[in-house]
Design a protein around this nucleic acid. Structure first.
Lengths: 208, 208
DNA sequence: ATTTTACCCGCATATTCATGCGGGGCCGGC
DNA sequence: GCCGGCCCCGCATGAATATGCGGGTAAAAT
C-alpha cells in the first residue's frame, strides 16, 4: 500500500527536492504540492492524503494554523511539520494544533522517509533537539515540589496510588503491604505536606 | 572523547547484550552495570557517567524513582529510559523525574548508540510510538474536558470547592445551600465524570 | 400542554477516612 | 555501641464520604 503524501512549502527549491525524493521512493505517492497554506486548505480536502509535510514558516497563514483547521475537519490526516528553526513557540503551537511530528529540515532524506512512515503508522517522530524542548516542559520544577522531596520513596509511591483514587485496601494490595501500614503512611504524608485530608494531599501532589 | 555510559537493568540477558554493544562501540565506554535501582543509587555517584541507560521496570524501586533521586543530586547526568511497554504512566513519570530520552527495548542497536549520543549532546531521542503519547498530551486539551463541560454552573462551583478540600458541610455553608443538596451534587457530578470517589473527581477536574 | 431538563431538598446505611495510641525490625552514621 | 530515619504492623473510634431510595419546583423544549 502506498502512503499518499502532500507537501506544503513556499520554497521552490525545497519543494522540488522533497517532491523528487518522495515520488521516487517506493511505497510513497505524492498527491499534491502547495506553495502556501491557503491553497493547501482548499486542495487537501479533495485528495485527502495520509500524511502532509508542512513547512512552519509559510508566508501569510502560518503552517500550524493551517494544520489546526485541516485537522479539525479531517482527523485521519497526519501532519509532519518541517522547520529550519528550533523555535519553541512554533513547536508547541504545532503540537497544540494537532501535528504529529516535527522535524528539522536538515534531516537526512532516509530519515525523513522513515519519519513519514512512522507518522503514518501512528508514531510521532521528532528531532532529538526538539524533543528535548518537549521533555523539559514536563520536568520544569513546580513550586510545591520542595515538600514532596521530603517524602521517602515508599511514601511517594503511596501518594501516587492515592492520587489514582484507590482505597486504602486497594493500595495495600498493590503495594503488598498491610492496610495498617497504609494508614501509617497517611499520617506521615499528611504531616509532611501539612494537609489534613486525602483531597488536599492529592491536590498538592498533582500541582507540586 | 569517550561517552561514559552506565547501565541499570535487572535482566541479565539484556544487560550483557547491551554491555557488549556499548563496550565494543568506538566512542563509548561502559563505566558500570547494575541490576537494581538501589545499587545504582549507591554506585553511580561514584563514577558519574555521562549517560545512564535505565530500565523502567526494576524490581523494588522503579526506574523513574531512581532517576528522580539521582537527577536531583547530579543534574549533569543524562538518563535514557528503556522499556518494553508503551505505558503512559511510566513515560510521564520518567519525564517528570528528569529523564531525557525514552526508548523501547526493541530499538535497533545502531539506533540505540545514536540515541546515547543524542542524549549526550542535549537531545531527547524518543521512539515514535512514545513520542506520540507526549504529542497527544498537548493536542488533547483534556480527555475529560468534554465531560467537565456537561456540568451545570452550580455543579462546577461545587466541584471547585471539593477540589479545595472543603467538607460537604463547609461547601453547603459557602454555597448557601443545604447539605443534602451538596450530597445531591456529589451524585450527579460523579455520574457525569464517571468516578466513584471524591479523589477521582478532583483529579479529573484538575487535569481536565 | 405535556414532557423534559435542571435544580433543590430529605433520610438511611455501609464504607471509607482521619487520627489517636501502641509495637516491631533494619540500616547508616556519630 | 546507640540513635535516628525509614519501613512495617496492629487496634480503636469518631468523622466524613458514597450511594441507595425518595420528593418537590420552575423553566425550557417539544
Amino acid at each position: 500500500m502506498q502512503i499518499k503524501v502532500a507537501l506544503v512549502d513556499d520554497d521552490e527549491g525545497i519543494r522540488s527536492s522533497l517532491s523528487l525524493l518522495i515520488s521516487r521512493a517506493p511505497g510513497f505517492k505524492l498527491t499534491g504540492e502547495y506553495a502556501n497554506a491557503e491553497t493547501a486548505l482548499k486542495e487537501i480536502p479533495k485528495t485527502l492524503p495520509d500524511v502532509v509535510l508542512m513547512d512552519i514558516n509559510l508566508p501569510g497563514m502560518k503552517g500550524y494554523e493551517c494544520v489546526r483547521q485541516l485537522k479539525a475537519e479531517h482527523p485521519a490526516v497526519q501532519f509532519l511539520m518541517l522547520t529550519v528553526y528550533e523555535d519553541s513557540d512554533s513547536l508547541f503551537n504545532s503540537l497544540r494544533a494537532g501535528a504529529s511530528g516535527y522535524l528539522l529540515k536538515r534531516t537526512a532524506s532516509a530519515r525523513l522517509l522513515e519519519a513519514i512512515r512512522d507518522v503514518f503508522e501512528g508514531g510521532s517522530p521528532m528531532s532529538p533537539q526538539l524533543a528535548r524542548r518537549v521533555v523539559q516542559f514536563f520536568s520544569q520544577p513546580s513550586p510545591g515540589a520542595a515538600s514532596l522531596a521530603r517524602l521517602t520513596p515508599a511514601e511517594r509511591e503511596f501518594l501516587d496510588q492515592l492520587a489514582n483514587g484507590y482505597a486504602y485496601k486497594e493500595i495495600a494490595d498493590r503495594m503488598k503491604i498491610s492496610i495498617d501500614t497504609v494508614r501509617s503512611y497517611v499520617r506521615t504524608v499528611y504531616e509532611k505536606l501539612h494537609v489534613h485530608s486525602r483531597t488536599e494531599a492529592v491536590v498538592k501532589y498533582l500541582r507540586g
